[in-house]
Amino acid sequence: MIGSMPVDARTLLHELTKEARDLDIGNTVARVSASQLTSLVFYRDFVSRNKPVVITGAIDHWPALQSWTMNYITERMGEAKISVARTPHGRADSVVRLDGSQYFALPEEEQMPVQEFFTSLCRENSGEVIYAQAQNNSLPEEFGPLLKEVADLEWATLAFGTNPEATNLWIGGDDSMTSFHKDHYENMYAVVKGRKVFTLLPPSDAYRLYFQTCTVAQYRRNATGKLHLEPEEPSRGLPWATVDPYPPSDEQMEASKLAHPEYWDPDLPPPLQVVVGPGEVLYLPSLWFHHVRQEARADVCVIAVNFWYEMAFDCKAAYAKLADQLAAELHSNSHAN
């Protein structure tokens, strides 16, 4: 109650969203030169505040910025095989609606020689989309010959107080897209080629993403050789965000506005959007929701390296858990009504 007026959870969550933006987050992601950062400044101004920032000039010394072309990577990797994700549409690990049901769609996974991967990546109108997106410490584990052409961000390592738990290499084209999700890691995301477009929401805004429990399924080949979804056996469900910030048609945009009114609400601060280009690094704080799409342009493919650092399970993790629980309760009551 405020005075004699009852206040519902939705109103309080809306106020939380607005106050978080007004007090600290703002409506844009700052860009800071690495020359202005020390580990202390980085920790004080961004890590401790769980606030994203784009850092310029932080990887200018990486040989990868100049050397990593498709031909160069193929030559360095030789006959080595890498893990590749394959889908019909480029939306792996995302919600797919099929025959009236919602599935969390895992990609078909395969091992593929690097030369074959790049050849397939450049092939137009193949009807399928491939993406090197393995999150298994893939740079040292699968792309070892390239490892020495990047370097840890020493000031970030000092700020987090630990070495990276994983260093992953991402290679894909325009069609690859990552759905809204969050990670329990502090993420330093460095773009080497092409551009990445991040759409961001802070942990307080979990209610705007309309998480639903979806049946987990994976793309597999049918008898005709086409990819189709097969639910896992035994069946299991996974809560996942159902909002697509880039509906592919006007009709789907209108449907999304009806199904997800709080994501599109013009009275709420819009999601943050930031473009990260070659040579730039995004600090993506732990527990922030992010959607990622790619712009290959003349580079043919988009290449990025990210460092995952262990997050601190402190009070912000407790706040984020509460926000998740309130969001689940809010939408559960909405469906019940």
Rank of each mutant, 00 (worst) to 15 (best):
N136W: 05
N136D: 13
N137D: 15
N137E: 12
S138W: 06
S138A: 11
L139T: 01
L139P: 02
P140D: 02
E142Q: 07
E142I: 03
G144S: 10
L146G: 05
L147G: 04
L147S: 14
L147A: 13
K148E: 12
E149Y: 10
V150Q: 10
V150S: 05
W155N: 05
A156G: 06
A156L: 09
A156N: 02
T157G: 01
T157R: 07
T157Q: 09
L158K: 08
F160D: 04
F160C: 08
F160P: 02
G161Y: 05
G161T: 09
G161K: 06
G161N: 09
N163Y: 12
P164Y: 00
P164S: 01
P164V: 00
E165T: 08
T167A: 08
G173V: 01
D175V: 11
S176R: 09
M177N: 14
M177Y: 15
S179Q: 13
S179L: 07
S179R: 07
F180W: 14
H181K: 00
H181E: 00
H181A: 00
K182R: 14
K182C: 14
K182E: 10
D183Q: 04
H184W: 14
H184G: 14
Y185T: 11
N187G: 07
N187V: 12
M188A: 15
A190I: 09
V191H: 11
V191W: 04
V192M: 07
V192P: 05
K193W: 02
K193L: 04
G194W: 07
F198E: 07
F198W: 08
F198N: 01
T199Y: 01
L201V: 12
L201C: 12
L201T: 12
P202N: 10
P202H: 03
P203N: 08
S204Q: 15
Y207M: 14
R208Y: 09
R208S: 09
L209T: 08
L209E: 11
Y210M: 07
Y210P: 05
F211A: 15
Q212A: 13
Q212T: 10
T213S: 07
V216E: 04
Q218N: 13
Q218A: 13
Y219K: 01
R220V: 14
R221C: 06
R221L: 05
R221V: 02
A223C: 12
T224Q: 15
T224M: 14
K226H: 04
K226E: 01
L227T: 00
H228R: 03
H228K: 03
L229S: 05
L229Y: 02
E230Q: 07
E230A: 12
E232N: 13
E232R: 13
E232F: 11
E232P: 06
E233I: 12
P234K: 09
P234S: 12
S235W: 07
S235E: 11
R236Y: 10
R236G: 11
G237W: 05
W240S: 06
A241R: 09
A241Y: 13
V243K: 03
V243D: 01
Y246C: 10
P248G: 10
S249V: 03
S249M: 04
S249G: 01
D250V: 10
Q252N: 13
E254G: 11
E254Q: 11
H260G: 10
W264F: 07
W264M: 06
D265A: 13
D265K: 06
P266D: 01
L268A: 04
P269G: 04
P270L: 09
P271F: 08
L272V: 00
V275Q: 06
V275I: 13
V276E: 04
P278V: 01
P278G: 05
V281Q: 03
